[in-house]
Simulated scan of single mutants.
Amino acid sequence: MLSATGESAAERVYREVKGQILTNQILGGELISEGDIATECDVSRTPVREAFLRLEAEGWMRLYPKRGALVVPVADREARDVVQARILLEEHAVRTLAGDPTGRADLAARLERNLAAHRAADPADIAEFARIDAEFHQLIVTAGDNPLLADFFVSLGERHRRMTTTSVRRDDTVAARILADHRELLTAVADGDSDAYAAALAAHLASVHDLGPRT
Score class of each variant (00 low, 15 high):
A121L: 03
L148K: 13
P47S: 03
D76G: 08
T164A: 08
E16S: 11
V82S: 02
I132F: 03
L185P: 09
P47C: 01
G212T: 14
L156Q: 07
D151Y: 10
A75W: 02
R77P: 01
R104N: 10
S44F: 05
G192H: 04
D100K: 04
A196W: 00
P101Q: 01
D145H: 14
I178T: 02
D133I: 06
T215V: 12
Y14N: 04
A180T: 14
D133A: 09
F153M: 02
S44L: 03
F136G: 08
F152P: 00
L97F: 01
A202S: 15
D106I: 03
E91Q: 07
G59R: 02
I21W: 05
A9Y: 04
V48Y: 05
A203P: 02
E50W: 01
F52L: 07
E11P: 00
M61K: 06
L22P: 00
T164F: 01
R169W: 07
R183P: 00
I87G: 01
D172I: 07
G99P: 06
I87Y: 01
L53Q: 15
L149E: 14
R67K: 14
N146F: 03
V74K: 03
Y64G: 03
T165R: 07
S8R: 02
G28A: 10
E30V: 10
T166Y: 01
A105N: 12
L63C: 08
A121H: 13
A198S: 15
A105S: 15
T187C: 01
P101S: 04
T46Q: 12
H137N: 13
L70Y: 04
D151F: 12
G192S: 11
E16Q: 10
V189L: 11
A198K: 08
E128A: 14
D172A: 13
F129P: 00
H209Q: 14
V208G: 05
E128M: 12
V82F: 05
E90W: 06
A120V: 08
V154K: 15
A134Q: 12
A69W: 02
C41T: 04
L27E: 12
D81T: 05
S207W: 09
A196S: 14
V48D: 01
G144E: 10
H137W: 09
L149W: 08
E112R: 14
V141M: 11
A108L: 03
T187L: 12
E34L: 14
S167W: 00
V13N: 03
A206E: 12
P213A: 08
P65H: 04
H118N: 02
D151M: 11
D151P: 00
N146Y: 08
H160P: 00
F153E: 14
S8I: 00
E158N: 12
V154A: 14
A121S: 08
V72S: 05
D42N: 06
T166L: 10
I178A: 02
V17N: 07
A203R: 15
